[in-house]
Design a protein around this nucleic acid. Structure first.
Lengths: 267, 267
DNA sequence: GTCCAAAAGTCTGGAATCAGACCATTGAGG
DNA sequence: CCTCAATGGTCTGATTCCAGACTTTTGGAC
């Protein structure tokens, strides 16, 4: 029983929280930081867990064929009870993302591969997301990834770090088409992770996630890959060179291409 | 009954979630994005709500003397039940941050002013935070604020936006000493907010929050203010000029000063 | 002085979530 | 073939959290 990839469907089997309160322009305080009065929680534990696991699949943290950590361990790491985790796993299983097997050497095996895009997917994905959210996501991504590159380029890198960056760059370049996105993600996130800041890494992962569905709707074509390869190389070079501004410029240029493409679908 | 300003104390009256699971280097997947398997929730609803409200006070979203929105409205906006919100409000009341009055024209009035730092506060604050978390917060802030400045400088600004930025700059410069931090925050966050990306604004607010206690422990001295004023002006000028790299450089320089100062307390 | 509206304060039943004990299944190794 | 360890599957009582109805307090308007 496969289903679409929209994040909504997996929770079909257990629709809990009904609506979301509309955010209003409240007359509170002077600064416009009303965002602090946003919902404390994005949903119930079940929903948030489904979302989180789905993210892990989509970013390729746990690739096709591998299995998630054992329930007990995963529940601990996610800070939720095993019961709730199991509900989430079951939802993903029913949606076709996981294959759960019991017994020793059993586990929840990942059955997700990024779908190869069909004509019209991109337009649909962009439309579904909404103009404001798309703009928000693109801006956010631009800011955090540029910032991460700058920070990393400013840092005195250890040989170990330089190797990792180079390895990730090579990873994208050598990737099989089916693995391209995954390796691209790995490269981009490596920049944030090498900065040594978990907060920054999480922010970049979040930013990437918000455009994942869109990127997955873009066919991976030869010219695109080659173009990206040049830009990736420029980014890595600038970072290894310790040139913050060049690094940032390179990242901005790289992301601008994608952003322009996606924005085009809103006009 | 006043208490210290540490974020821990307000929850004294209701200590719930016990410990936090240590993050481990799990052998999951290829990328190191283990961050996705981090806890789904930072604490229980009560704790998170206390934290959120405390943040609103510390960032000056609701300044001294003003009152929070009515319980029902606030509960809706925060996406929690009134019961839970009231528990949080009571905790903050008992900690001396709020003055709750009933009846029409009643409400939860803010009784918080950033404390004037005493000698040793900074060292204590830095030590309490822990080396890794401090480094993380500083790196994160550097990245997102630089990124935000770059994005804004890249944007074609409307007259309205230019005015707002100028107004915030003037706000810091004209601020009374007691209001200085609040206006400084307003200026910094304006950069993120003017980018039009709620995600980016939230990230910058988060970043600022993570160093608020530390900054509050630094006395606001004349030379510091003047130095900051020059840097603030440079930032605003670069943004209004539409020079992304200058904007970023200016922000980096500005933040580097604070970062270096704080890092000094770890050596 | 009386009334009224807006706010905080209180109570109740039910759903969500949890911790932890226990059961069932499975494949590897002896 | 048997045993064992690691894993998913199930159950139970307690706690947290919720929605919503109801009560009390307060100050302004008439």
């Amino acid at each position: 029983m496969r289903m679409e990839i929209t994040p909504a469907e997996a929770s079909v089997s257990r629709p809990r929280t009904p609506a979301e309160p509309a955010s209003r322009d409240a007359a509170v305080g002077i600064t416009g930081v009303v965002s602090l009065l946003r919902p404390v929680r994005a949903g119930n534990a079940f929903e948030e867990t489904v979302e989180r696991l789905l993210q892990a699949l989509k970013l390729g943290v746990v690739p096709h064929g591998e299995k998630l950590p054992p329930e007990r361990e995963l529940a601990t790491r996610l800070g939720i009870s095993r019961v709730t985790l199991r509900e989430a796993i079951r939802a993903l299983q029913e949606a076709g993302y996981l294959d759960v097997r019991r017994g020793r050497y059993g586990g929840a095996f990942v059955v997700y591969r990024p779908p190869s895009p069909r004509k019209g997917d991109l337009r649909r994905a962009v439309t579904r997301m909404g103009e404001d959210d798309l703009e928000d996501a693109l801006t956010f991504r631009m800011a955090v990834e540029c910032g991460a590159a700058r920070v990393l380029a400013t840092t005195e890198l250890t040989p170990r770090q330089r190797e990792t960056l180079a390895a990730r760059l090579a990873g994208v370049n050598d990737a099989a088409p089916a693995d391209y996105r995954r390796m691209d993600i790995a490269f981009h996130l490596a920049i944030a992770e090498l900065s040594g800041s978990p907060l920054l890494a999480a922010a970049c992962a979040d930013a990437r996630l918000r455009v994942t569905d869109l990127l997955n709707a873009i066919p991976v074509l030869r010219p695109n890959i080659e173009h990206a390869a040049v830009q990736h190389a420029a980014i890595a070079a600038a970072i290894l060179d310790g040139d913050p501004e060049a690094a940032e410029r390179a990242v901005a240029e790289h992301l601008e291409g994608t952003a322009a493409l996606l924005r085009g679908f809103l006009a």
